[in-house]
Computed example of a mutant assay.
Amino acid sequence: MRLNRAPCAWTAWCAASWKTAASRSPKRQDTAGGTATVSTAAITPTTRTTRKRRRGPTWPRRSSSWLRVQGLVQCATLRERNLLADVCAHLERQRAAGARRRDLLRLVAASLRAAGHDAAVCVSRWGKFPSHPAGEHAYLDVLLPAASDRGAHERVLVDVDFRSAFEVARPTKAYRALLQQLPAVFVGKDDRLRLLVAAAADAARASLKKRGLHLPPWRKPEYMRAKWLSPYDREVAPPDEAAAAEVHGEGTAAA
């Protein structure tokens, strides 16, 4: 005896889905007059559009050199900050008059002396070494009065074009950010300058290495330190200026 079996639910659902898809498929007229089914994928391929996520500006990662420089750029004492303000004021005035670099240093030193500071132009010179060539560098120094009766004068270094000394070719974003942190005019003692030069020189080496460039000898830490920490000659004030300062000091003491 043969039993009539009803189709299972899965088979019925598959058949209904196939019929629905076939009825919705586009038709085209055949050359023989019949109709043929055209695949939808052949006409309009399915493309999945993804919406890009908007992000904010990407900032360079702060390296250890960046953090070291960030803690060394500010003046250490109130006297250094006041001296920095005086130097920037005289520097802006002399640059507006069109003075050149070496003349600019002498003019700023004369203006600082007229304001009562013991300032002078210093020229450091160093010989040739296996790691870097010989050279010389001009900057200012100011001898501040002793903080106490038994103390000695404080020698403060002043460089009016400090930031440009660390420029390199094809800098990375991280090094450009560090370069902007360096002061354009440096005023401070030699111990802070030594640490600042070391941090900036290490960052310059890392930037050049990432770009695949060779570190030039004039950007090595030894060469950069030699600019300000080598033996130097301190120019004395002109005789007429020294005589005027002496007369001014005697007049102040008599008053």
Rank of each mutant, 00 (worst) to 15 (best):
L3T: 06
N4S: 10
C14N: 01
R28I: 13
Q29Y: 07
T31I: 08
A32I: 10
I43A: 10
P45Y: 07
T47W: 09
T50Q: 06
K52V: 12
R53F: 06
R54S: 07
R55D: 02
P60F: 02
L67R: 14
V69D: 00
G71N: 03
L72M: 02
R79V: 05
E80M: 05
E92K: 10
A96L: 08
G98V: 05
L105T: 08
V108N: 02
R113A: 11
A115G: 05
G116M: 03
A120W: 01
C122R: 10
V123Y: 00
R125G: 07
W126L: 07
P130T: 04
P130R: 01
G135T: 03
Y139S: 03
Y139L: 05
L143I: 06
L144C: 02
A147C: 08
S148Y: 11
E154M: 06
D161T: 13
E167P: 02
V168G: 03
P171Q: 05
L179D: 00
Q181N: 13
L182S: 00
A184T: 07
V185Y: 10
G188D: 01
A198C: 07
A200N: 00
A201Q: 01
A204N: 03
A204D: 02
R205G: 11
A206L: 09
L208C: 08
R211F: 09
R211W: 13
H214F: 15
L215Y: 02
P216R: 12
R219N: 15
M224S: 08
R225K: 14
R225M: 15
A226G: 11
P239A: 11
A253N: 00
